[in-house]
Design a protein around this nucleic acid. Structure first.
Lengths: 189, 189
DNA sequence: CAAAGCATGTAAATAGTTACATGATTTA
DNA sequence: TAAATCATGTAACTATTTACATGCTTTG
């Protein structure tokens, strides 16, 4: 675990740390990062393809990652790895106790908040949509549980599996909340 | 409850619906909207002041809100209300069953995911920071519980109080998850 | 051989934040 | 009378998404 000797303070966007972190966990190409994000951190932070490739170049320019050509036959391919600088920067970010306001961006919950603007049936529909959305997310997260556990066994990286639990807990809570809200809605005041 | 006769499909940004919804719930000025967001929907969707004022003008241009001068002495002040068009647009958006992927943007959880990049102590610090953050949010949401209940009694708008519960449930779940993760971390594999 | 997946990228547009700028009114 | 709160806004910047564009390789 590197200490933060030369901790770059240029505070990169969060997406940059997602890339650094994923490279550390074994991703090699931009495509790998994209897949990894989609299956795991997507719950905590989404990034799109259009961010990944430019950011990788930027990070290379800053010396935080090292790229090399890893083309496969005629298919072009760039493989990256964290540089020592990159590891230091990632660790320094993790240790930095910056204010981190919890931020959800969820249209389903947002719509629920304004549910009084439609009739009772449409209001109930909002609740049930929110629940089925959480059920789907829950299924997706549970599928990741196995692979995450394996990663923990094989590489000793325990945090991905542990934080997956947090995601699972959130959606279980949302499903329970939906049930409760529904019950109250059918009971008139 | 209006039906969506002339449902504007120009699909506005989510922030626009937040404004429409808040006006419907009684906010009058941009400042009111800002305060309302900070105390309630902030959990589901954040918007900043710099978005509110330009959006209000835009919405006025589209005929979805109606503004009038409501200056108080020499203090300038614009008061807005939903137009009928605006109510229709809001209701149509609520009824529209668009894909709504759950999206969290949370550096605390994100850092937790990459916690293996630092030592055991720093890793535990990530868990405890995430927990205290959720405890603070929980306190804030619980403070809103009273006012939300009153709103429900006085105006019949029940959804704000109900969806507040979802927010409370989420943070309770995250606190429980943090406890569990911590327990596992101190137990070596 | 078609479809799915691998792989990389750009352009244009939209969305959102931060910082600044201003000044009035109410409350302690 | 100082501090807090009310109130509105702009400029500059940063972040992010959507849509497009390309073409290879593996699998069914």
């Amino acid at each position: 675990m590197p200490s933060d000797r030369s901790a770059k303070t240029h505070s990169l966007p969060a997406a940059a740390y997602v890339i650094l972190g994923m490279l550390r966990l074994g991703a090699e190409t931009g495509y790998d990062v994209k897949k990894a994000v989609q299956s795991s951190t997507r719950f905590f932070w989404t990034i799109s393809e259009a961010q990944i490739y430019p950011l990788l170049s930027q990070l290379e320019g800053l010396g935080l990652v090292e790229g090399r050509d890893a083309s496969h036959g005629r298919r072009q391919r760039r493989a990256f790895r964290l540089s020592e600088e990159g590891e230091i920067t990632l660790a320094a970010w993790l240790r930095r106790d910056e204010p981190a306001p919890f931020e959800v961006r969820d249209v389903a919950l947002l719509k629920l908040f304004f549910g009084d603007a439609v009739g009772a049936d449409d209001g109930l529909a909002l609740v049930s949509r929110m629940r089925s959305r959480s059920r789907a997310e829950l299924a997706r997260l549970r599928e990741q549980d196995g692979p995450a556990q394996e990663l923990a066994q094989e590489t000793g990286n325990r945090f991905p599996a542990l934080s997956l639990r947090a995601g699972i807990a959130v959606h279980e809570a949302l499903i329970a909340a939906a049930d409760e809200i529904e019950r109250e809605l059918v009971t008139p005041l």
